[in-house]
């Protein structure tokens, strides 16, 4: 599955931040994990060197050295004391370095709940009491320079939440809530990917984290409190009517309308998303029509049916309506 992820749309500006580099931390949590990874790599190389040296000594070394190497003292020092001391120190250091990432939620934390669904992401912004204040999907907006606590869960099978540049990788388990913190030091777009095989199009289950300056984030949050603008043109109005009559509303919600389906991603502001299909296509007219008309060819076995029975002008009208939701 890996090659597919890393070859798709290498050059696409529309999918900024993709593929997410793994050794390029953009915040303190990812930073400490990267430090740990490099230290572990360094230690592994050092141990390998010691072992090779010991083998060489055992085969070709001077007799006196070989005798020492085979002695009981060497086993106590090299075989027991060295690993116990080194591994204990590493464990303590590693745990303290990363302990802040998943400590329990405190009252002042900014909270976002993310639920893995086959094969997309349901996103809820929560207030201090854990009440939902905003629904979205496939995109997570955060203020830069600020720690955000994610409550990770799953609606079906085990998924894993991973934004390599912002934090660690944590499983999303049905019936459980795992906490992981993320932080971006600078505004930007950071790619993420499901990191636990969850069947079918798992490799095509991506998302993006968008970090804003704190002021921009405040504006964004305020603008999302209102429902999206009503369709402004005749074509968009026709698209809105088709959205209801073609059955889209059974699976999708659009705030401020009668569409309140929950089986698929919330589309209230789908026109403002950077991607379609859960992080995999740039969001433009063509990709929108192509997705609605036949998402099954793009993301095989995903849970949205193909709509090849809709005539071209209907597909276009629906796309125009959805584009306007921003």
């Amino acid at each position: 599955m890996q090659p597919l992820i890393f070859t798709r749309f290498m050059t696409v500006e529309g999918l900024a931040g993709w593929p997410p580099p793994v050794f390029d931390p953009a915040g303190p949590f990812a930073g400490s994990i990267t430090t740990l990874a490099w230290v572990l790599t360094g230690m592994a190389v050092a141990v390998l060197a010691i072992v090779l040296l010991a083998i060489w000594t055992a085969l070709k070394g001077r007799p006196a050295l070989r005798k020492r190497l085979g002695g009981e003292r060497m086993i106590w020092i090299g075989g027991v004391a060295f690993p116990v001391v080194v591994l204990t120190l590493l464990l303590i250091w590693g745990l303290s370095l990363t302990s802040g990432i998943s400590k329990p939620i405190a009252g002042t934390d900014m909270r976002i709940r993310v639920s893995g669904e086959m094969w997309w992401w349901r996103v809820s912004y929560l207030d201090g009491q854990g009440r939902e204040i905003l629904r979205d999907a496939n995109e997570i907006h955060i203020p830069a320079g600020q720690t955000v606590a994610l409550e990770l869960t799953s609606a079906d099978v085990i998924h894993s939440f991973w934004v390599p540049r912002l934090s660690g990788k944590l499983d999303m388990i049905p019936g459980r809530t795992n906490v992981m913190r993320i932080q971006a030091d600078k505004p930007g777009v950071y790619g993420g990917q499901c990191a636990e095989y969850c069947g079918g199009p798992h490799a095509l289950m991506g998302f993006v984290v968008v970090a804003h300056t704190p002021e921009d984030f405040g504006r964004w949050m305020a603008s999302r409190q209102a429902p999206p603008p009503a369709p402004a043109t005749n074509e968009a109005r026709r698209g809105a009517a088709l959205f209801a009559s073609a059955g889209c509303a059974a699976c999708h919600a659009v705030a401020g309308t009668s569409a309140n389906g929950l089986a698929g991603p919330d589309l209230s502001y789908v026109g403002a998303r950077r991607t379609l299909g859960a992080g995999i296509l740039p969001n433009n007219r063509g990709a929108m029509i192509g997705w609605i008309g036949n998402s099954q060819a793009i993301k095989p076995a995903n849970r949205m049916p193909a709509y090849t029975m809709l005539p071209a002008e209907d597909l276009k009208a629906i796309a125009v309506y959805l584009e306007g939701l921003k």
């Binding site: 749309f9 050059t11 063509g286 990709a287 192509g290």
Partner: peptide
């Protein structure tokens, strides 16, 4: 090819 990838012609 880069243009075609960027525009996502292959969505269709």
């Amino acid at each position: 090819k880069a243009v075609i990838e960027k525009a996502a012609c292959a969505a269709c």
